[in-house]
Amino acid sequence: MTQQLSAKPMSPLAEFWFYFSQNRGALAGLAFVVFIVLLAVFANFIAPHHPHEQFRDAILVPPVWAEGGMSQYWLGTDGVGRDILSRLIHGARLSLLIGLLIVTLSLIMGICLGLIAGYFGGFVDTAIMRFADILLSMPALLLAIAIVAILGPSIVNSSLALSLVYLPHYVRLTRASVLSEINKDYVVSSRVAGAGSLRLMFITILPNCLAPLIVQATLGFSNAILDMAALGFLGLGAQPPLPEWGSMLATAREFIQSAWWVVTFPGLIILLTVLAFNLMGDGLRDALDPKLKQ
């Protein structure tokens, strides 16, 4: 009985995929994320109508399977006769773009601040970490609301507010990884070989700190989408008539007694998208965390 063992170890990517694909929840999450991304990219071709187009003769039409539904409006229409399905599809584009913007902004700023804090230490470190602690001591949504109160409600301002709010998580993660890497032999030898601070920070150390940051960024996506929708719901984020999922819910509130479909679908797609990113993030963490690999 000889067992076939391949001589070569798996490539990092293959190894990652091996662990990731064992997690059924993560695969389901990934599948849904891919689906939503495709919807967002091809929104113009998939959506049956324009998201702002108002059909005056079809106001509050129920979904196609309900009594009184019309076949051209699958998920029904809202209070001013806009097709809900088309608005949800275009909303996917908006939500994903905003999520991407927020995560990218806070990731870049967080990495820079975290690298500086961890690499230089001393006073700079204390100052940056104190700042991060202050931001962390307030709940994300509250802080975002405060910043929006200063800047004024709009989709750009609330994105800026949320990227500032998520910043401390990335700063802390980066700093912690930098501190665990900075005294390792490869860094010391690179320094002895004459590498400058910038090269050490960004080329030598940073690539070895990426795993936890990738996980955090994925989970950050779900937070960004959820909090953005919450701000939209409160009227502090996207302003009408933008088809943002949260602000769609805000305008739907007045129809809660009469038209359940206006209320149900935007929330459902927020829940599914956030759930998908969370599942994927959990799977990534399991696959990238070396402690869980025997």
């Binding site: 719901f233 949260g246 819910l249 829940l271 969370n278």
Partner: peptide, 22 residues
């Protein structure tokens, strides 16, 4: 637990209101 963690609570409130109150 996972669903609850991902829940947009403003929507959850509206859903419960739709079911139990309306």
């Amino acid at each position: 637990s996972l669903t609850g963690y991902s829940m947009p609570i403003f929507w959850w409130g509206l859903l419960l209101m739709l079911l139990f109150s309306v």
